[in-house]
Simulated scan of single mutants.
Amino acid sequence: MQVERMDIERLDVERLDPVAGRILDAALQQFTRCGLRRSTVDDVARRAKVSRVTVYRRFGSKESLVASCLLRESRRFLAVLDAAVAELPSIEERVAEGFAVTLRHIRSHPLMGGLLRLEPDVVLPFLTVDGGPVLVAVRDHVAERLRREGVGGAGNGGPGGAEAATVAELMVRVVVSFLLTPASCIELDDADRARDFAHRFLVPLLGHH
């Protein structure tokens, strides 16, 4: 599936359009049950009880529909992630717990986990920076949280100003790598091992802050 570079704001049509929300609900059901390759815009339209023209008017293409669906699920996940780490006392613990929660949540997610297991080559373009709205949205979210913690701030000894985005992208890319290729000499099958890995290899990216 060829994915062009996508504007995240253009994909976020659900907030202003309840019909688009219904279409995305139908797309989630369709893609979860049948995958991306076997699903068509007509399939989604039938589930949503709208015409295929209505789907195309809202989303323009199957690729944009897929991207919008994945983006919405990613934003839902980010709310879960924020809640999971909110009460932890240090940024180091939040990074470690966030890494473990992310691996567990994505692997068990009916849509994202299923696509990563069964159609990794199809979903990969949506998870790359060059046009991948999912990775961009998650990276920006993590970067903003790091900035709130003082990571990348001037004079704190950590990564300089704009480098919070770089640290966030490195963290997200590590997660994507493990999700796409789970077979590894690095054991991350349980939460304790994932936290330990994050403390040893991701926390140092924060620098001294």
Rank of each mutant, 00 (worst) to 15 (best):
Q2D: 01
Q2P: 00
E4Y: 05
R5Y: 08
R5K: 05
R5E: 15
D7T: 02
I8Q: 05
R10M: 02
R10N: 05
E14F: 01
A20D: 04
I23M: 13
A26R: 07
A27N: 13
A27V: 09
Q29K: 11
Q30F: 07
T32H: 04
S39A: 09
T40A: 00
V41D: 12
R47I: 07
T54S: 14
T54C: 12
V55C: 09
F59C: 06
K62G: 11
E63F: 04
V66H: 13
L71E: 04
E73W: 04
S74P: 00
F77H: 15
V80S: 15
V80I: 10
A84F: 11
A84P: 00
A86N: 10
L88F: 05
P89Y: 13
S90C: 06
E92C: 06
E93K: 14
V95P: 12
V95S: 04
V95A: 03
F99L: 08
F99W: 12
F99Y: 14
V101M: 11
V101H: 11
T102M: 01
R104S: 11
I106S: 05
R107D: 06
S108H: 10
G113K: 04
G114T: 10
L115V: 09
L115I: 06
D121A: 07
V122N: 04
F126L: 04
L127N: 15
L127C: 13
D130N: 11
G131C: 08
G131D: 10
G131A: 09
V134K: 10
L135E: 11
A137H: 10
A137V: 14
A137N: 13
V138P: 00
R139E: 09
L146F: 02
R147D: 06
G153T: 00
G153Q: 06
A154L: 01
A154C: 01
N156V: 11
G158V: 08
P159H: 06
P159A: 07
G161V: 13
A162N: 02
A162R: 05
E163Q: 12
A164M: 10
A164V: 02
A168E: 04
E169M: 09
E169F: 02
V174W: 03
F178K: 15
L180H: 07
A183R: 14
S184T: 12
L188D: 11
D189V: 07
A194M: 14
A198Q: 11
A198C: 15
R200N: 14
L205A: 08
G207K: 08
